[in-house]
Design a protein around this nucleic acid. Structure first.
Lengths: 156, 156
DNA sequence: TACTGATAGTCAGTATACTGAGTAAATCCT
DNA sequence: AGGATTTACTCAGTATACTGACTATCAGTA
């Protein structure tokens, strides 16, 4: 029987688990209360203002049922607001608040620090290799999950 | 601002998410109902019979509160049983049932297939490299989560 | 032996992620 | 135009993972 340490699935789970812990520690130390998932949503929204929930979900590969809860909590923290779309009455357009922009800007150093910590075991060269292999492995299986990554469709 | 695809935390989350989906698909196709987490627990238990919950948790780096629920479900599926420890009245010794052994044996091919699928984007050489970098990165930060990996302490 | 601290397990609460189902609205297509 | 299909979102239910708190028990020590 193969050892757990030869199982990419197990290693991925373990690395992700530690990465989340590191993220929490750094962000909390910086005085913020934001999860990795909430941060990614906020960052994607800042780079793509005015998108709806489904588009945001596609940009960061979240399931549509997951994004609902994430947005609920971001709205509750007053980091963004849901607005009815003028073009599509099914859709919720998301807009960051000033507080949301300020929070995102303020938390960036902690997020950068967290990314450094989680790769502290690797040299710069290894880090480059690791991220490259990650991207390559992921792109080959992207369509196998319920929440595939999608590029932002330019507005029609 | 850095792109999500340069963030190891984000890539880890994404890869793990897809890995779980692949695992589910392969295992279900083989006629079994077992999550990745449940499989890892069962496999670790088979290689280390008669251990208690805390030891099992350490072997696969699960939190002690997480392992409780996982074991609950494995017990409910009659794959293993909880027994009072003779040496330590706080501890629950875990024993796999015959059905548990049979299930584990039967599901192995599907698990192996899943590991192959999740790395289908990488060559054999890249796969070796990827796993090596994973292990190296993880071992440098193992102690930063609430559930660090522990080697099985030989019984006193 | 009593005191202290550590350990095993559980529980309540919160946050991802998923399945599957359902509603409402938009789009496609003839 | 009108019916079929697709899409956007939500909800209920389940399974990881965590924090923090609690009980019971064990182990070390004065």
């Amino acid at each position: 029987m193969r050892d757990n340490n030869d199982m990419p699935g197990h290693l991925a789970r373990r690395f992700q688990q530690i990465a989340v812990a590191i993220f929490h520690a750094e962000v909390e130390a910086a005085g913020y209360d934001l999860t990795p998932v909430q941060y990614a949503a906020l960052a994607a929204l800042q780079q793509n203002p005015g998108i709806d929930q489904a588009t945001l979900a596609g940009l960061i590969a979240y399931d549509r049922t997951t994004i609902t809860g994430v947005i609920d909590r971001l709205v509750q923290k007053r980091l963004l607001v849901r607005m009815a779309s003028a073009r599509d009455r099914r859709a919720n357009v998301l807009e960051m608040t000033d507080y949301g922009h300020a929070t995102l800007e303020g938390v960036v150093p902690a997020v950068e620090a967290a990314q450094k910590v989680m790769l502290r075991g690797l040299t710069a060269e290894e880090t480059t290799q690791f991220l490259e292999l990650f991207r390559k492995a992921i792109s080959a299986v992207n369509d196998l999950s319920r929440a595939p990554l999608k590029t932002a469709a330019r507005d029609a």
